[in-house]
Design a protein around this nucleic acid. Structure first.
Lengths: 189, 189
DNA sequence: CTTATTATTAGTATCAGGTACTAAACACAA
DNA sequence: TTGTGTTTAGTACCTGATACTAATAATAAG
């Protein structure tokens, strides 16, 4: 690994990087990485305002958990900010580099699609819903870091089929439009 | 809350429910909820095979953490097994529980879509390609664990627009069909 | 070279939220 | 009454920390 001792400044920047990559590292593991004592790591965290392992893990857990929890178990891509079951809903997705092409930082289509599709499913007032048909158009490019606001509206319901329209915006600009036909599944097992 | 003492069986079912709702509850909080001693709670968890708070939190954190990585990490969703740039390509995606709905183990649509879309982009003989329009149909359910074989074919090319058809199979059975219109982007910045 | 000052390390006490184990008390049914 | 299951009490120990004191090492300033 790193068998050379860095100075404080360098160690601090690297420490922040390391923990960004992997927030599950204990002080002990970090101490070996940087070849300093555990006290030094703790002083560093103190100076940098980095919480302890258990807090870090908890933060990661709570973040993603509250999103899922809001709707009571349904898995959603993005954060649900408003929902009227059976009629409409809004979700927000903060894009980042991991969702984009390396070279261009342009967000890949399937991330935008995933947000829209999962919102469409969430809006349906049914236990389990599946996409039958989707008709989508990407109207403009989305760059990593932009915030996607998706608005879904149920336009029609026929038997167990739902027609849902989703429009996604970055600010005022529409970047995506999708029509989904969803089927709610009956538990017939 | 509950000021009546339940019997073991009832308490166990309720305990499982409670922790499903909120895995961040400590033994102490649970002990107050059920009006029993902390040892009883610990015996209960032991019998039910429920890990301690810190483990539960860690599980939640790790799950959602790896999910973010998985959906963002690769440029191509699935494994590219054959490609003829500009004409056709085949990719394989092994599905698992993380791609599926919890209750039903049915693979969520956007995973199937992501495989198809990224294969369509890969097939295009251009530096960067973006989905303009997609028209897809999910023809049958996919269960977690099944292997998706996606076959893409370029059907037409006009200026910088490509028309790509993707068919996805599980074994011999077709589960998905998609038409994508992709645009290759010129670096005009 | 000799102080200051900063950086690092050592060591102890304490905490939360547990595990693991022993033993006692209680419930109530045969 | 005796047996069996359930609950509680209590102790020792664990991890990954905080909070604190004090000593030592490294580097800069005089």
């Amino acid at each position: 690994m790193k068998n050379v001792k860095l100075n404080k400044r360098e160690r601090h920047t690297r420490l922040v990087e390391k923990l960004k990559e992997d927030p599950f590292l204990t002080d002990e593991e970090l101490m070996h990485m940087f070849n300093v004592s555990i006290q030094t790591i703790r002083l560093d965290r103190l100076e940098l305002g980095i919480p302890e392992l258990r807090e870090r893990i908890k933060n990661v857990a709570e973040q993603s958990y509250s999103k899922v929890r809001a709707i009571g178990g349904t898995e959603i891509v993005g954060e649900l900010v408003d929902i009227n079951l059976g009629t409409s809903g809004i979700s927000i997705l903060e894009t980042d580099e991991t969702m984009a092409f390396l070279k261009t930082s342009i967000v890949r289509g399937h991330n935008i699609y995933a947000q829209a599709e999962s919102l469409a499913i969430a809006v349906i007032d049914a236990d389990v819903a599946l996409t039958g048909v989707a008709n989508v158009k990407y109207k403009d490019l989305v760059k990593a870091g932009e915030k996607l606001i998706a608005k879904a509206e149920v336009t029609r319901k026929r038997a167990n089929k739902y027609f849902v329209h989703v429009f996604t915006y970055v600010g005022q600009k529409q970047v995506f439009r999708g029509k989904f036909i969803l089927a709610s599944i009956e538990q017939k097992n």
